[in-house]
Amino acid sequence: MNATVRPGKPPDHRYRLHRHRIKAPGVDPRVDTLMGMVMSLLSEVSVLRERLDAHERLGAAQQPVTPETVDDYVPDEAVQQARAAIRQRMIEKVCRPLLAADAKDHDGQDRST
């Protein structure tokens, strides 16, 4: 992924959500809403973590750290790999409870229903 441009003004016409989103039987709509919120929040944390990473690396290289230099920072292959590892750890941590929902847990209790 290559970053080459700075953020500009926000979009002026929006059609961000798809048409025809049906309710899933069995899925509590409140949980569904929260799922969307948690995933979006995690995405924001991931972005923040990468901005912080750019910050640290610019600092370590004794480069000026401003909003513009962070926007212009382009991670090389090694940095991208380091970021991917952090991202992966974060996703696994946050999503683990989703997968555990059906397992007989270490205490032997069946949480499948």
């Binding site: 992924m1 990468e50 920072y73 382009v74």
Partner: peptide, 9 residues
């Protein structure tokens, strides 16, 4: 093209 933050997202 993606900005730094868009690429991260």
């Amino acid at each position: 093209l993606s900005t730094h933050d868009e690429a991260a997202e």
